[in-house]
Design a protein around this nucleic acid. Structure first.
Lengths: 127, 127, 127, 127
DNA sequence: GTGGTCTAGACCACT
DNA sequence: GTGGTCTAGACCACA
């Protein structure tokens, strides 16, 4: 079967991705406090240092800000969050299309493949 | 032709990906001989060890076979190649959709985004 | 007036720095009463504990003295204040030059850089 | 004496600063290989992780680039290095002047202080 | 209690 | 051998 050479994504990136999703979905509101480093580490079953790094990266991306002795908070800059949403959307689409066309799939083939997939998940949703 | 790898994915995976694309597109025909390890290494501006690993993986996936003293050849098993094509297509689509929905994008939003992207690339193609 | 601290230096140090400047400039006269801890905390939009620490440090440096039940006052020892002024001046200059030369800037380059900077600020002042 | 509240700079920042100085001075040439993480850690008497972080930050600043299995190298982008030089110069000068004027020192006083300091170091150099 | 830095030591993937 | 990630545990400064 097509077990196609999956490269393992580092945990800290996975967690970042996870938090980003929560932010994008609105599960995490602007200005909301994130769990403390230790708390989150416990929750994710991971070492506090790993979370520390996650929060560091989020801050570097202006998605969160750390306040000394108080905690880490989702940025209140809604523009930045909106931008994140669009950036991620475009980025994923672009990579996807680039990947597919580089592999020689035509636009029609891609579209059909997507429709097919949607149909399949709908059927499964019917169960 | 020199190297042009920039992303974080390991070089050997990028090269595998590249060769797979060529096979899928038919640029590399079933049974066709791949360049020798050294030749390919030179062409890609990369260490021969890296190519060695690439060919090893391709063989492990039954996409190529090494013939002692003759070189490495694309498999002549056309079924395997056809299967590769479909596997990769399904896999990419599945991952893509999973990613997008996990980030909270609706089906509509995804479809619109794709159309938008296609439109944009068409415009750029007009230049 | 709200808070306006952004750099990485601890807030309490920034506030100390700020008060020192006021003392040096004469905005705060020898013997003048400083705002109460709570008052100052409110004014700076900061936790009272932080101000507490600020006043403590100022007292440790003999720049202020707390009088039980009355408040905290700028020291009346004018020699100490004069000394503070000179100390800070020398210290900043020394650090600045040490920094610059360690980075390999020549004396000429430093001087030119300063002149250039003065010129620029003058121009901006003209607006 | 004027022991003015020096806040301890983290080791990793000190090392970054140190390497930047070497780059600016030309002690480290563009494209030159930096010592391996472990080597540097030994040399600086520091934990490898700390150096790891240093190199990570340098890479993020486009001042160095890590090549898998080969080592970490000073960027070959000379423009970036020139920019670093200017950035640091301006930054230090700006901070210095801002600091001094905020403390109420006049332009004359600053200039005189600098001249005085240069004179003093010259005398010491004569010894 | 909270974030930030640092150490010691391990394991892995890549070249 | 090289960079990169992760763990475990410690200490500190800040609020």
């Amino acid at each position: 079967m097509g077990k196609d050479f999956s490269s393992k994504t580092p945990i800290y990136l996975q967690i970042i991705q996870h938090i980003c999703s929560q932010i994008i979905r609105g599960d995490l509101q602007p200005g909301e406090k994130l769990p403390s480093v230790r708390e989150m580490a416990l929750k994710m079953g991971v070492n506090p240092n790993t979370i520390q790094r996650v929060y560091m990266e989020l801050e570097r991306e202006s998605l969160a800000e750390a306040r000394r002795g108080q905690g880490t908070f989702v940025t209140e800059n809604r523009d930045r969050l909106q931008q994140l949403r669009l950036d991620l959307k475009h980025d994923r689409i672009k990579t996807f299309i680039a990947d597919m066309t580089e592999m020689g799939f035509t636009t029609e083939e891609i579209s059909l493949g997507l429709v097919e997939y949607f149909a399949k998940s709908l059927n499964e949703g019917d169960k």
